[in-house]
Design a protein around this nucleic acid. Structure first.
Lengths: 250, 250
DNA sequence: CGTTCAATTGACTCGGCTCAAGCAACGTGG
DNA sequence: CCACGTTGCTTGAGCCGAGTCAATTGAACG
């Protein structure tokens, strides 16, 4: 695949941000909206498979995902890869790099992704002038922490089958909430991604996913996972769901 | 052990906070210090083994650890437990509960722990009036996220021996930075804690720790882990260290 | 002086890994 | 338009890391 160079542009004005139409996201005050408009520098579009941020990079930007799917990951020297979490519309990426200097993980696109690019230098202004937005950023960081807690519980203590069911139910719930599915619930990941998320080998991941497919919970085709029975997955995982209602975004 | 009731008191004034003497923590401005003094309501002392916060609790307080060791964990319905991270002096606990309503994990003391108790309601004032402290809270949340990323990589992709070495090296590094050791580097955990952190059984954990002991990296005695060779542990884990210099605390 | 909790150790089993092939769907170049 | 090389999914065989069961020791506690 010939990866095109990333495309910069300034298309969507924040006033007509498509994310604002989605029910899970909280309303902005007009004053907040005005600031965010100025905070946003431009938009960036990348292809599926493109690397958005690299571990070790210093001058990372701050982004919000406008559309598309991606994932955060870390690798060991010998190449072993661990996927940490998935990024979807409304997610803030690059916060670690912006706040603490250096990125400690990479981010890669699973589908074509478009991003809002924010002025890194204006972040301090946000904290100084817009406490409610500053609070939102902390909220987002705390939410990410919460999800990582759940993943850690999953990898550490759930069985392979439970883990797989949990992961797919988790992605399904998030996608559903963001109205990412029309009709079919297709998650754009390969079994290799699942393996690298669950800490399993591909072979064993394949056999485990096959069990879920045999139970008629999912079905795998063309590099995507189709969710057939979300509730069945949650039951198989022993997972209660995200339990989150309205959330902020920047 | 007859757990005494937690003891509330107001002893240490922030101006003479013992944590401020430790080099890793950043300096407060006098104006910040003044606010934090008012933000702090009282102090709380709990015994080893006491539960500081419970998963599902709603009106959680916000604390900073003044002294002692503890850990955050989650459990599955059938009792499987996963330790998520350890808490040490300077760590903020209860942020998730304060910001998002409900605690999704519990916190337990490993040693006698003393805590600063903060006024939950004044948190918004902090965001409104003290942007630098608000930024610090985000910094702390982002740092926790970073550590969870590393733990996830560890549990997901490192071997049992590497994981164990990583965990102990990690605790050792943090303790060293906080000047928690005088002479002996003793970490107050049992092998059950190690097992529940690494996602292993106690039996296998014991055999793995024995290997580290045979290599003269650690030695286990009286419910504590003595670190003999911190660099050796880091090498065995293939871990670079925390790489963090000065950090904020509240 | 029994009881309890943590650390140990051995025996046996099993979940998950590695190795190895095979197959289907693509995209590319001749 | 076909022969490839590639990527992703599948499956079987055999092995090993890690789990379970079980029993022992030693220290701390009441």
């Amino acid at each position: 695949m010939a990866t095109r160079r990333p495309t910069y542009s300034f298309k969507t004005p924040c006033e007509r941000c498509p994310l604002r139409a989605i029910a899970t996201f909280r309303e902005f005050s007009s004053e907040e909206l005005e600031f965010v408009s100025k905070f946003k520098r431009c938009e960036l579009a990348v292809d599926a498979g493109a690397t958005i941020l690299v571990e070790g990079a210093h001058s990372a930007h701050l982004f919000t995902v406008l559309s598309g799917w991606g994932f955060r990951y870390k690798t060991l020297e010998d190449g072993r890869r661990q996927i940490l979490n998935y990024v979807m519309p409304g997610d803030l990426i690059g916060l670690q790099g912006t706040i603490m200097g250096e990125m400690q993980h990479s981010v890669e696109a699973l589908s074509p992704v478009s991003l809002c690019v924010f002025e890194r230098d204006k972040l301090m202004t946000l904290y100084n002038k817009h406490a409610s937005l500053a609070f939102d950023i902390t909220w987002i960081a705390a939410q990410e922490e919460r999800i990582l807690d759940e993943h850690l519980l999953s990898i550490g203590r759930r069985t392979a089958l439970e883990r797989a069911a949990y992961l797919i139910a988790f992605l399904f719930e998030r996608g559903k909430r963001l109205k990412l599915f029309n009709g079919e619930a297709s998650i754009p990941i390969t079994q290799q991604h699942v393996a690298d998320t669950l800490g399993l080998s591909i072979v064993h991941t394949n056999k485990t996913l096959k069990k879920l497919a045999n139970r008629n919970l999912i079905c795998w085709q063309e590099r995507t996972c189709e969710v057939i029975d979300g509730d069945g997955l949650m039951a198989a995982a022993g997972w209660e769901g995200l339990g989150e209602k309205v959330r902020p975004f920047i």
